[in-house]
Simulated scan of single mutants.
Amino acid sequence: MTGVPASAAGGPSAAKGGPAGGVSGAASGVAPSAPSDAVSGTAAEVRASAVPAAGVVAGAASGAGVDSGSKTARGGKIAAAAVNQASVWNVANLLTMLRLVLVPGFVALMLADGGYDPAWRSFAWAAFAVAMITDLFDGHLARAYNLVTDFGKIADPIADKAIMGAALICLSGLGDLPWWVTIVILGRELGITLLRFLVIRYGVIPASRGGKLKTLSQGIAVGMYILALTGWLATARFWVMAVAVVLTVVTGLDYVRQAIVLRRQGIAERKAALEETEA
């Protein structure tokens, strides 16, 4: 009797224990792990599928950005080219044209009434001063507001040399300025212009501060000679012209030096590039 109840007791206990163990096993093993893995797997799949989608969206966005950016850049270049082609009649070029028109007017005023009338010489000085002032402004305006054109590149130096050459020749023709001064200044200007064209295949000779100071000193000196000055002002203009001539010669020699150096560097670079391609 004692064994039966024990086994009977054990049976229910085992019966209890069986379901409990099954339930706990299910709770600890199958039931939690299966949903957890399923959920985590699903989340991983969602994340994995989201990454390519995000990549596609980002790629599409970047592609659209690059495409729109390239289109914008191309459109900007085309617009800029159109502006440059259509901007011949801009302010900078108009100032250059004014300087060209002033040349014959200046000569007429300079030689009016024999070329020695103080009043006509004053009018000629005014025309020369306007030409020199426009020379200062047209280049600055062209660079500052992107108004550089092929016409301006050609016409601007021509206008500069035309007004200066006309003034020097008139002064020497009237006997106010020695011819050798005119020959030195004009010879330097024409020589440097020719030199620039000869070495342009190797590079561009930049304008120096000495060149700008030379231009300023020439303008002041020639302007003082155009006016009918007397006394100490007449003496002062002689020394100003002497400074202008010295700067003309010194800066001219410096341009020659730069041209020689630029040519040597260009030849060396071409030789090195040729050797590299042959190797």
Rank of each mutant, 00 (worst) to 15 (best):
residue 90 N to W: 03
residue 279 A to G: 12
residue 75 G to A: 15
residue 130 V to W: 11
residue 139 G to T: 02
residue 277 T to P: 02
residue 188 R to N: 09
residue 20 A to Y: 00
residue 226 I to D: 06
residue 245 V to T: 05
residue 157 P to W: 00
residue 182 T to V: 01
residue 40 S to A: 15
residue 92 A to V: 01
residue 74 R to N: 03
residue 146 N to S: 06
residue 118 P to W: 00
residue 100 L to M: 09
residue 194 L to I: 09
residue 56 V to R: 15
residue 229 L to W: 10
residue 170 C to E: 09
residue 25 G to N: 12
residue 162 A to I: 01
residue 12 P to D: 10
residue 110 M to A: 15
residue 13 S to H: 07
residue 210 G to W: 05
residue 253 L to A: 13
residue 241 M to S: 10
residue 178 P to V: 01
residue 190 L to M: 13
residue 179 W to P: 04
residue 10 G to R: 10
residue 63 G to L: 08
residue 90 N to F: 02
residue 214 K to M: 10
residue 89 W to N: 05
residue 50 A to G: 04
residue 184 V to I: 12
residue 179 W to D: 04
residue 133 I to S: 12
residue 87 S to K: 05
residue 229 L to C: 08
residue 129 A to N: 07
residue 42 T to D: 12
residue 242 A to H: 12
residue 42 T to G: 11
residue 242 A to G: 11
residue 59 G to I: 06
residue 124 A to S: 11
residue 198 L to Y: 15
residue 92 A to C: 06
residue 230 T to H: 14
residue 205 I to E: 14
residue 137 F to V: 07
residue 130 V to I: 15
residue 134 T to N: 08
residue 257 R to F: 13
residue 225 Y to V: 02
residue 221 A to P: 02
residue 239 W to G: 01
residue 256 V to N: 11
residue 140 H to Q: 12
residue 61 A to F: 05
residue 134 T to I: 05
residue 263 R to G: 05
residue 203 G to A: 08
residue 278 E to C: 11
residue 159 A to F: 01
residue 184 V to D: 06
residue 127 A to F: 07
residue 211 G to Y: 06
residue 71 K to G: 04
residue 190 L to R: 08
residue 149 T to Q: 05
residue 64 A to Q: 14
residue 77 K to T: 03
residue 16 K to S: 13
residue 190 L to T: 13
residue 262 L to C: 03
